[in-house]
């Protein structure tokens, strides 16, 4: 068996083309203006955090307070601290686009970005209820 042939170039080219296409298609989607972060602990959704329209803050999952999530207030969230040995989650960087996720597998915490929408109707519903109570 030979170490390499010209056909390997075809294989590498095909894989790079698929990469380029999938990246291109993804970037064609309009950026989400109101991304939200879903926080999972042991595969259960524990919270959904808005990432825009907030002050910079930190968030801890109740069960694993050693894991600290940092919200930058500008649409991004990242693992700020964790006591896991490999620190893969901390090195994952800032998440801001729907589809992105980062996981701290040793602590069972996963953060996933989902598309959000500005909820214009919610305040009106609350007002309506208040009127009803009055």
């Amino acid at each position: 068996m030979k170490f390499t042939r010209m056909t390997d170039l075809l294989l590498v080219g095909t894989l790079l083309l698929i990469s380029l296409l999938s990246w291109g298609v993804y970037t064609f989607f309009p950026p989400d203006e109101f991304p939200q972060a879903e926080v999972y602990y042991q595969n259960e959704l524990v919270d959904t955090l808005p990432l825009t329209g907030i002050m910079p803050s930190t968030y801890k999952v109740y069960q694993v307070p050693q894991v600290i999530l940092v919200l930058d207030g500008q649409g991004g969230i990242r693992f700020g601290e964790s006591d896991c040995p490999d620190q893969i989650c901390v090195h994952s960087g800032v998440l801001s686009k729907p589809g992105q996720f980062a996981a701290c597998l040793p602590n069972g915490v996963v953060v996933k970005i989902i598309p959000g929408k500005q909820d214009h109707e919610a305040p009106e519903l609350i007002l309506g209820n208040m009127k009803g109570i009055e």
Binding site: Y40, N43, K112
Partner: peptide, 27 residues
């Protein structure tokens, strides 16, 4: 599968390109 149907789509380019590089290295 383990984590709520997280989309593979976003990471596909990274997985493919890093796979090509890792394959070249191991070969």
């Amino acid at each position: 599968l383990l984590y709520m149907g997280i989309s593979l789509w976003f990471y596909l380019p990274v997985l493919l390109i890093s796979g090509v590089m890792a394959g070249m290295l191991t070969a």
